[in-house]
Design a protein around this nucleic acid. Structure first.
Lengths: 233, 233
DNA sequence: CGCGAGCTTGACGTTGTTCAACTAGAGTGG
DNA sequence: CCACTCTAGTTGAACAACGTCAAGCTCGCG
């Protein structure tokens, strides 16, 4: 485990990489969050927290990429979300039963900021505007999940893979060319299919000239075609 | 449209069917919610709100059953949740973009209490404990969605139908015998399969003696067997 | 140079959807 | 009161989509 705490990080008051989630915090609120706050670094493949463990800290991704996933039947994973900075990388367990209901793993070198749940909760109580922002943030994730449910239940494999590629291109890497930090298995876990099926779709997209793939380097040559495949399902 | 407003309903202060969500409200909070509050009755099959429409009221189910669903590709629906009293029957749109991202329909005669979103938001700002309860409530739904995502992506049809039957038995009707207020199509929409597939599973369960079905009357004779099928996927 | 993990491909079997036909029951109009 | 129609439910047959299994490949690393 990579528990390299960095306590000499800038404190919240001076923090310039703050999430919009924290826009409405007063200096006093920030001081509360800053108590016991610390930063941890993770290497690729390292587990940040594990499904079933207790929910002790609210974790904010400062740099790197993280996959949030649930472990399902026969230890098949479903990747719920890929997170990039600056974003909360916690699930819904905090106010439910104080446990994590998913796991989180670093995909690349990661820095994460840890805030004690009690301090977080205290600020929610102190600052109604922040509470509202928290609700908004949770609602966004919820909506994202709903959309994914439709995709995963109603699109077939080519549509799901195409959608995933667009997601990485548009939302994660912000470019039509990118080095995917996921293995083929993880790409498949994101789409809810087997890795063989995912690979076959990539092969087909390659054959028809919509994408170029070499190892983990992707180049979406014809995004509109991919969009079309994604929409047709 | 069944807009039978019942303004002579008891006001919030005297309301005895209150959701635990509202346990921390002060009399002042209740007075705020009670402004412009009204109750609407719906008949089975009537639409309560529609995906894409604007989010003007927070709606609380007082009596009856409601299905919340999303309209997907080729107008195939996915039923996200069946709600029973007393429960909020709104989706995540309120704080995101002020629109509904799902639809809600009465399955049986329904009474629903309408609270203006602005009043609701005001109480969230006034009362941090309520804000926390709202976050908890949303988190619960979110967790429910996550679990369903696993089911819908990793279980095959018999497992999904079995799980649905257990859900109706345990969570909705509270009995191993019940009259299902869903059509076969709706049962299928809940499981994310075609109605033909759902029917075939019911047929098999019937043949092996796990359930008895006559029209919409269900009798789970061997719940443990159904549980087993649900778990095996 | 050889080993191993992740990737790729093909062949095959299963699952579930699609399509079409048929049935039963409720509602409608003559 | 009886056709007629329309909808929901049911069943069977054919087909397509995916997953499974097994074999071979590639590439990085010891």
């Amino acid at each position: 485990m990579a528990l390299n705490k960095i306590r000499d990080c800038v404190n919240c008051l001076e923090c310039d990489i703050r999430s919009p989630l924290f826009r409405n915090l007063t200096p006093e609120d920030q001081a509360v969050l800053n108590q016991e706050r610390f930063v941890v670094k993770y290497q690729p493949g390292e587990l940040i927290y594990k499904q079933g463990s207790s929910f002790t800290h609210v974790i904010i991704l400062i740099s790197g990429l993280v996959k949030s996933y649930m472990e399902g039947k026969n230890s098949k994973d479903l990747i719920l979300r890929i997170s990039k900075p600056v974003e909360l990388i916690i699930g819904p367990g905090q106010f439910v039963d104080g446990k994590h209901h998913n796991s989180a793993m670093a995909l690349v070198p990661v820095e994460a900021c840890y805030i004690a749940v009690n301090n977080y909760k205290e600020v929610i109580r102190r600052n109604p505007l922040f509470a509202e922002d928290v609700i908004r943030d949770i609602s966004f994730r919820n909506l994202f999940s709903f959309k994914r449910m439709i995709t995963l239940t109603q699109k077939q494999v080519p549509g799901r893979v195409a959608e995933a590629l667009l997601y990485f291109s548009n939302d994660i890497y912000g470019s039509t060319t990118f080095d995917l930090n996921l293995s083929r298995q993880e790409l498949a876990d994101f789409c809810g299919v087997t890795k063989e099926s995912a690979i076959r779709v990539l092969k087909d997209l390659k054959a028809e000239g919509s994408i170029r793939v070499e190892g983990n380097h992707f180049d979406l040559i014809d995004p509109q075609m991919i969009q079309k495949i994604s929409e047709l399902g």
